[in-house]
Write a protein that binds this DNA or RNA. Structure first.
Lengths: 240, 240
DNA sequence: ATGTTTATGTCGCGT
DNA sequence: ACGCGACGTAAACAT
């Protein structure tokens, strides 16, 4: 008897089983009770009683077959490339249910770096009075300059934004960008890192690099966004 | 009314809910049906109908509170450090169950590097004819030499094993080990990397370093292990 | 189809 | 507690 793994349906079961994995490497898990989830897109998760991550799994896009014989159910999930297979031998089913999840909502992730950028664009003087934006996501060969503008005296300001404490990598990255940028005649090129703080060991390297640092916390950025955007505050006002 | 989140128990529910996350960054997910899992160690997973990974989650070790009011259940999972919170507003419960998973099995992951080492130890001439093992996991100040032996001419061979394509780090590591090793008088010291392949940019560095490269794939290693070990083939013969 | 980069990565280990 | 590297990382994005 073969269980029809209903297309588009979510299969949830609590079972006693063993799990074998073979592929990029291999694993073995003896008998025990686990929560098994099979999703409609052909991925499978085997969860134990603790830990965020499943003890065994197979990502979406693999072929799942199930067959029962002699009172045991064997679930097999094979991923074509890279070739790897997950095999569950189910001895005992404590719970089994299938669900059709009605879920059309859009998932919105607020990338804080993007919000910091938006805050600077909306209110450039958060950097310093008189700062004007010329461009953002400006293309240079190694990547994109987050914000590009001029200060009150006409000097070019090149801003790299970091949501985390600014460390060596961002210093290196910004120095790389500078190779492809230059200030107008008689003006200076002011490289600047905008971040909530400076990483522990990076203070002296930052000083030596000639890069300026301007503190901007996510909280401050959010305040600015709130001030300018009356709509879309729902996600923000539920802080606690 | 507050649901008692039974200690050590696994809570599984299929609900219609909204999810807000705020912490390292933030996210918003409108109403829809999802599978929610709360484990005994205080982690929470919100799964949609597709994809291996949960759409929202909180790792283990966070404080989970639940309160019901006006027909809606609010689940909150707060992680102290880094401070972040996940909030579910549950409108409708399609399924709810709690389970006590009896699971004492040990999870065994076959680290392929270890199996490559075992294959070399079982059959040293997989490296080259006449190669003899003197020691493995041999202690040197910076770490452990994977395999240590002599070739047919009495030269000392120092082997570092990598399961992934050998890159710069392993070259550096092996060179480090060499500082603490020396060949017998009149003999050579032969550093060697054993790996399935050489990483993209590492070819020339490897040549310059004076380190030899011997290809050994996991598959070849497994073949050798199979040849020598008649037992423990169960995990291997169930392919497909 | 393959390679590269990101991530609310998570997790384990060493200091 | 913090920093670092590994992971069967997975997934998105570019080639």
């Amino acid at each position: 008897m073969v269980i029809g793994l209903e297309a588009r349906r979510l299969l949830v079961m609590v079972v006693s089983c063993t799990v074998e994995y073979s592929g990029r490497t291999g694993s073995h898990l003896g008998e025990g009770e686990r929560l098994v989830i099979v999703k409609g897109d052909g991925c499978i998760l085997v969860h134990r009683g603790r830990d965020y991550q499943p003890v065994n799994w197979q990502p979406s896009g693999c072929i799942i077959q199930a067959q029962a014989s002699n009172g045991t159910l064997v679930l097999k999930a094979v991923r074509p490339s890279p070739l790897e297979s997950l095999t569950l031998v189910v001895k005992d089913v404590q719970f089994l249910g299938t669900f059709l999840l009605q879920d059309d909502a859009e998932f919105i992730l607020h990338a804080s770096e993007e919000e910091m950028q938006r805050a600077i664009i909306l209110q450039p003087d958060v950097i310093e009075p008189g700062f004007k934006i010329l461009d953002f996501e400006k293309k240079v060969p190694p990547g994109f300059v987050d914000v590009y503008g001029v200060d009150s005296e006409g000097n070019t300001v090149v801003i790299e934004i970091k949501k985390d404490p600014a460390g060596f990598p961002v210093i290196k990255q910004l120095l790389e960008y500078l190779k492809y940028l230059q200030a107008p005649p008689g003006k200076k090129l002011r490289p600047m890192i905008v971040a909530p703080s400076i990483a522990k060991g990076a203070q002296s390297a930052l000083a030596k690099s000639g890069i300026e640092f301007k503190q901007l916390t996510l909280q401050k950025a959010v305040e600015i966004l709130q001030k300018y955007a009356r709509s879309d505050q729902q996600a923000l006002k539920s802080w606690l």
